[in-house]
Simulated scan of single mutants.
Amino acid sequence: MSKACIAGFSLGGMIARRFAQDVPSMTRALIILHSPHKRSAEAQAAILARVEQAREMGPAATVDAALERWFTDAYRTANPAMMDTVRGWVLANRTGIYDTIYRVLADGIDEIVLPEPPLSCPALVITGDEDFGNGPEMTHAIAAEIDGAEALVLRGLRHMALAENPGAINLPIRRFLDDLAKEPE
Rank of each mutant, 00 (worst) to 15 (best):
S2Q: 13
S2D: 11
A4L: 12
I6R: 05
A7Y: 01
G8M: 08
G12L: 02
M14N: 07
I15F: 03
I15W: 03
A16Y: 12
A16R: 11
A16G: 10
R17I: 07
D22F: 04
P24N: 02
P24V: 01
S25P: 01
M26E: 11
R28C: 00
L30P: 10
I31P: 12
I32K: 02
L33A: 12
S35K: 05
S35T: 00
P36D: 01
K38H: 08
K38M: 10
K38I: 08
S40G: 13
S40D: 11
S40K: 13
Q44A: 14
Q44K: 15
A45V: 10
V51K: 04
V51T: 14
V51D: 04
E52L: 13
Q53Y: 01
Q53P: 08
A54V: 06
T62R: 02
D64L: 06
D64K: 04
A66F: 07
L67P: 06
E68I: 10
R69P: 12
W70K: 05
T72H: 02
D73M: 04
D73K: 12
D73H: 09
Y75V: 06
Y75M: 00
R76V: 09
A78T: 04
M83T: 05
D84R: 09
D84E: 15
V86Q: 03
R87D: 08
W89P: 11
W89C: 12
V90A: 14
L91N: 11
A92Y: 05
N93H: 15
N93G: 15
R94Q: 04
R94I: 02
T95S: 15
G96P: 03
G96V: 02
I97L: 15
I97F: 15
I97E: 14
D99N: 13
T100M: 10
I101G: 15
I101H: 13
Y102W: 07
V104G: 12
G108T: 08
D110E: 09
E111N: 04
E111F: 01
I112P: 04
I112F: 01
I112K: 14
V113Y: 00
V113P: 02
L114G: 15
P115S: 08
E116S: 13
P118L: 09
L119D: 11
C121T: 11
P122R: 03
P122M: 05
A123T: 11
A123E: 13
A123M: 08
L124N: 02
V125T: 14
I126Q: 13
G128R: 00
G128M: 03
D131H: 04
D131I: 03
N134L: 01
P136S: 14
H140K: 12
A141M: 11
I142K: 08
D147V: 13
D147K: 06
G148E: 14
G148V: 02
E150G: 03
E150M: 01
L152Y: 04
V153R: 06
V153K: 07
V153T: 15
G156R: 00
L157H: 06
L157R: 02
L157S: 09
R158Q: 14
H159I: 07
H159V: 08
H159A: 14
L162K: 01
A163T: 05
N165P: 07
N165G: 08
P166D: 12
I169Y: 02
N170H: 06
N170W: 00
L171T: 09
P172K: 02
D179C: 07
A181E: 12
K182N: 03
K182A: 09
E185Q: 10
